[in-house]
């Protein structure tokens, strides 16, 4: 089984990358692969738990919670988090840790393959 590292640099509601990320990660985990992801730049917005939308659609954070529950390990860039006023990720959903680029460096060292979104 492979170790897959992923980078996500875009937030929800404006880019479809969160959805691609969730679908790919889910498929990879279902096949028994490990997925570690680093959320960088606006990618850190995917972790905010208090998402609301007037229509009844699956919320991006719910998609992310599902892949976290399946075993995806996610680290958000702390500089990006604080730059966006997200105060150390205090409103982040469970399972997303706040770290830094050295975490991405370690994920890259450990991984067999890498996908950027």
């Amino acid at each position: 089984m492979a170790k897959i590292c992923m980078l996500l640099t875009e937030g929800p509601w404006q880019s479809e990358n969160y959805e691609i990320f969730a679908q790919f990660t889910e498929a990879a985990l279902d096949k028994g692969h490990e997925v570690q992801a680093f959320w960088y730049l606006d990618g850190v917005y995917n972790a905010i738990k208090h998402q609301k939308f007037p229509e009844d659609v699956p919320l991006p954070v719910e998609r992310m919670q599902a892949v976290i529950k399946k075993g995806a390990k996610i680290t958000a860039c702390g500089i990006c988090v604080n730059a966006r006023g997200l105060e150390g990720g205090k409103e982040f959903t469970e399972g997303v840790s706040v770290g830094g680029l050295p975490d991405l460096a370690d994920m890259l060292s450990e991984s067999d393959t890498f996908v950027a979104l």
Binding site: Q23, D30, H33, F114, A116
Partner: peptide, 19 residues
């Protein structure tokens, strides 16, 4: 192809990312 097949491609080959 679906995501299932994409995962196979990604784990069996190096990925050149242009996303």
């Amino acid at each position: 192809i679906g995501y299932d097949a994409l995962v196979d491609l990604v784990v069996n080959n190096k990925v050149a990312n242009f996303t």
